[in-house]
Design a protein around this nucleic acid. Structure first.
Lengths: 198, 198
DNA sequence: CGATCACTTGAACGATCGATCAGAAAACTA
DNA sequence: TAGTTTTCTGATCGATCGTTCAAGTGATCG
């Protein structure tokens, strides 16, 4: 811990990051202006530049925070005590409910993947890490469900986990695009059928 | 057909639109500049403004063209003579191969949905129309497969079609983000399992 | 207390954005 | 051919972009 020197920062960095995250989440990277971000964070431009360097630095931190706060929350939900398949169901239906909401704006990470693809190497590494986490989370809960004989022994948990992660991206895009409630429900129903196989 | 009056246009509008479509497809709307578009199209700025009004007008035309040229091609592929399930398989594997390619840039419509959500009403209507076409295409081939007893009678074709459309979005995001070959293959494998149910 | 360092503010930077103006050039109609 | 209409080119517009400069403010340390 380095000793504090000079005037301490006045604003709450976590709160500011949350505010920036929301703006990026809703509008994407390119369509968001620095002035817009600073207004949402309640700080002046220079404070932002002193803090995170530039707009891209703030975006990377926002995506990282989204990962830690939102995505990891999804992982936690899947790791709760009790029935693994119950946890998975709860998680899937939470995702579906979110995607069906009229004000759904999708997933920040999915949006980032769609906006940047692989053009920004550092961002791509970050989103790949998030994606891997999601795959692991799904695969893990499936493993536990299999161990508890809640799903068929023939299911390839890692494969299914990967597929669920891909489907999640599809659901997030569908939710952001305001796609029909039926499409989302029926996607969940398809997963339901899948889990009952073998 | 209105009679031609004044100096005829020198450039090929379809070729220009194709060029613009490619640029939008790769970089998205906001990250693409008018100068960049005009250079790719091989015309001057004013020609573009005279032709389509503004950048957004060009984008809408590009998305529409993507729909007519690429998405409808997918529909045609599903409606070929011969085995419906074979057509579906061919289509799914073509999608997977595309998503697995290192230079995959996803789907322009999926990208548009992710970038704009529902904020641009006219664009949202257009992407919704595309999405409906895709659902119909998948549902249609499933209906024909069911009629030919290639899939189980218990499958809800419309529901399954909707789900496939959502999964397609997920695959396109995964492809653009350079996600692992395994994720994509396993998503296809999941659909495979689905189709063998009942 | 005085020195120092970091944070804050507001003005201002050059660059680039999408869009437009003015005028020359060209091909149609009559 | 004369007149009309549109396209084309190149310069240029005001606005906004992300970023930085300059000065003032305030907390900490010797």
């Amino acid at each position: 811990m380095t000793p504090a020197r000079g005037r301490p920062r006045e604003f709450d960095t976590e709160a500011a990051l949350d505010a920036a995250m929301m703006v990026f989440w809703e509008h994407g990277y390119e369509a968001t202006g620095v002035a817009q971000l600073c207004e949402a964070m309640g700080i002046a431009k220079q404070s932002m530049y002193d803090w995170v360097g530039d707009k891209r630095g703030l975006y990377l931190l926002a995506v990282e925070r989204y990962y830690q706060e939102r995505i990891c929350g999804l992982g936690k939900m899947l790791s709760l005590e009790g029935s693994p398949i119950g946890n998975l169901w709860h998680c899937l239906h939470a995702m579906a409910d979110y995607a069906k909401a009229p004000d759904c704006i999708g997933c920040l990470v999915t949006n980032a993947q769609s906006e940047f693809g692989t053009t920004d190497e550092e961002l791509a590494k970050l989103t790949a890490r998030v994606e891997a986490y999601i795959v692991d989370a799904f695969a893990g809960v499936l493993e536990r469900a299999k161990a508890a004989h809640e799903i068929g022994a023939g299911i390839d948990c890692r494969a299914m986990g990967s597929a669920l992660a891909v489907v999640r991206n599809g659901l997030m895009v569908a939710g952001r695009a305001g796609q029909s409630v039926e499409s989302i429900d029926q996607t969940i129903a398809m997963i339901d059928t899948m889990l009952k196989v073998k």
